[in-house]
């Protein structure tokens, strides 16, 4: 009963805040509602017994990605009325994409079948499964043995994307004085300091 109540609570908040993401007038409020959606989706994952995925969702999406979203949106200098003016022209395209997604979801769910022993593998978040294997361990075993190649490839793709982003956005601006710690460390007394004997009355 409690799980059911928790499910309806999380699901209702996910739906309401997801709608609020696209209806909120202020973009910052949109991002905050998006964060609320992520957070409650993590709650749904916990109810499914996928506590590892739930925590990773919070750490990665809420703790890192959404912070950067919020950061960028807060810094934007946009007038909200201009933003809303042309919004209606995208409605047909949005409806088409939404329709396709809905059709695909229906197709997937109508053909979906659970493996007969799937229920045994669901770990309850607070107890280990019958064989003493936690969720994290199970994911690790599958990911690093069966799919290690795909895992490495996705890591490489991310690396390429990261380097690409740095190459595209990094520019050396002229006239910026930066602290070069290596240069400071490499400075020697003999390079910069000259000691002269000054006899009194004659000057340098």
């Amino acid at each position: 009963m409690l799980t059911g109540l928790a499910f309806y609570l999380f699901a209702a908040v996910v739906l309401v805040s997801a709608i609020a993401v696209i209806t909120a007038r202020n973009p910052v409020h949109s991002v905050l509602f998006l964060i609320l959606t992520f957070f409650n989706a993590a709650g749904l994952f916990i109810l499914l017994g996928a506590e590892f995925i739930a925590m990773i969702l919070v750490i990665v999406y809420v703790g890192a990605v959404a912070v950067l979203f919020l950061f960028v949106v807060m810094m934007l200098d946009i007038s909200f009325s201009d933003l809303r003016k042309g919004a209606m022209q995208y409605v047909p395209m949005g409806l088409i994409i939404g329709g396709i997604l809905l059709a695909e979801l229906i197709a997937v769910f109508s053909a979906w079948k659970f493996a007969p022993n799937a229920a045994d593998n669901i770990a309850v978040p607070f107890v280990q499964s019958a064989e003493g294997i936690t969720n994290t361990e199970a994911i690790g075993r599958v990911l690093y043995t069966d799919y290690v190649f795909a895992f490495q490839v996705s890591g490489l793709i991310l690396l390429v994307a990261m380097i690409g982003a740095i190459v595209l956005t990094h520019r050396t601006r002229p006239g910026v004085r930066k602290q070069k710690v290596a240069d400071q460390q490499a400075r020697k007394k003999s390079d910069v300091l000259e000691i002269k004997k000054v006899t009194s009355g004659t000057g340098v």
Binding site: V28, L32, I35, E51, F52, M55, I56, V58, I59, V62, G63, A64, V67, L70, F71, M74, A123, P125, F126, Q128, T134, N135, T136
Partner: peptide, 27 residues
């Protein structure tokens, strides 16, 4: 209170969310 399997991840998740209080206050 809750001896969960992913305790350390939970701690990390909660501490990483702390930034929202500050950033929301600032904005």
């Amino acid at each position: 209170l809750a001896d969960i399997n992913v305790g350390i991840l939970y701690l990390f998740a909660v501490s990483s969310m702390g930034v929202y209080g500050v950033i929301m206050a600032g904005w």
